[in-house]
């Protein structure tokens, strides 16, 4: 979808999606006609709502439609037409269309999987500046913003480095800075840690946590394989074969061992520990990290 004409483009908020950050309403998508003929949609009848400021994880196997969902969300792909009138993707109450998507896209920051393939500038500085250049920010202001955001992600001392001299985790931190510097309201992480080593993963996890504390209004949608990360989020969406299997708080979702086992997904550590300890009559319901376990067991 490419925007051609610059007509008057005023946000139109649909009552029906008011007050939500993201709303998917009966969204379908297929890559080619043969898929459609077989009824095998890549994304099939997806509806969900994400509230502003929440931290949502989307889990599922490769090929479950997770990444397609991310691309739909940021307007790179367009949902296919359906007979349902409301069907579509709403960002802050506004339905994404061919005409307005580039304006709406501005509210959504994307960080992708491969650290190398999203490093656009020649150096850290230039990469963070790239989005600002596109937004026509004057050069005099850029310097200040680059300082601020590189410090936030802990990359300030590497501003003049080239990507080949950075680790995967550092490149991802730059990508996050380059995205956040444009002040998006929604940050989408599309398997942003899956190609990183444990150190890089820890860096990014810590950074996400920090960002949430600093800016509680930022909505974070993380597409991930990391079941432990999902366990720490506000809400979990489980996808399988392009459909939503389960949606709810981590406690609700992961308590349903049967469903997860059926689609061969792992169960988070503390959920399993809770299950094991139950056999000994020890109840650790409500424990979701090490410190709360310590508090409960080591009184």
């Amino acid at each position: 979808m490419k925007k051609n004409s610059k007509k008057k483009d005023v946000p139109v908020i649909d009552d029906f999606a008011k007050g939500t950050a993201v709303k998917f309403e009966h969204v379908f998508f297929y890559y080619d006609e043969s898929e459609k003929a077989n009824g095998n949609y890549t994304v099939s009848d997806i509806s969900f709502t994400i509230n502003p400021g929440s931290y949502v994880t989307i889990i599922g196997h490769n090929g479950s439609g997770k990444s397609t969902l991310a691309k739909l969300l940021c307007g790179i792909l367009e949902p296919c037409a359906t007979s349902v009138k409301e069907s579509g993707i709403y960002i802050f109450g506004e339905k994404m269309t061919y005409e307005n998507y580039s304006r709406i896209q501005h509210q959504i920051g994307m960080v992708f999987q491969n650290p190398d393939n999203q490093f656009i500038g020649a150096t850290v500085k230039d990469d963070i500046a790239f989005g600002l250049e596109n937004d026509c920010v004057p050069a005099s202001e850029m310097e200040k913003l680059i300082e601020e955001y590189s410090t936030k992600v802990g990359m300030h001392e590497f501003l003049d480095r080239e990507p080949s001299a950075l680790s995967g985790g550092q490149k991802q931190r730059v990508a996050i800075a380059g995205t956040l510097v444009r002040h998006p309201k929604i940050l989408v992480l599309d398997e942003a840690t899956s190609m990183l080593d444990p150190k890089g993963k820890r860096e990014i996890t810590r950074l996400i946590k920090m960002m949430r504390e600093e800016n509680p209004e930022l909505t974070i949608i993380s597409i991930t394989h990391d079941i432990e990360e999902a366990y720490q989020s506000d809400e979990v969406i489980v996808l399988n074969h392009g459909k939503i299997v389960k949606i709810g708080s981590p406690k609700e979702v992961f308590a349903d061992f049967e469903t997860l086992k059926n689609i061969k997904l792992d169960i988070p550590f503390f959920q399993r520990l809770q299950d094991e300890l139950q056999k000994y009559g020890i109840d650790i319901t409500g424990v979701d990290d090490i410190s709360s376990l310590v508090r409960l067991l080591c009184r």
């Binding site: 520990l273 094991e276 300890l277 000994y280 067991l297 080591c298």
Partner: peptide
């Protein structure tokens, strides 16, 4: 987790722990 529990005074024998069920049994 086992290390953290031991450091906080829970009496676990690290030698017996190799996986999640054995951790649960040591805690019990």
């Amino acid at each position: 987790v086992a290390r953290e529990l031991i450091d906080n005074g829970l009496n676990l024998d690290l030698k017996n722990i190799s996986d999640l069920p054995s951790l649960a049994s040591e805690i019990a």
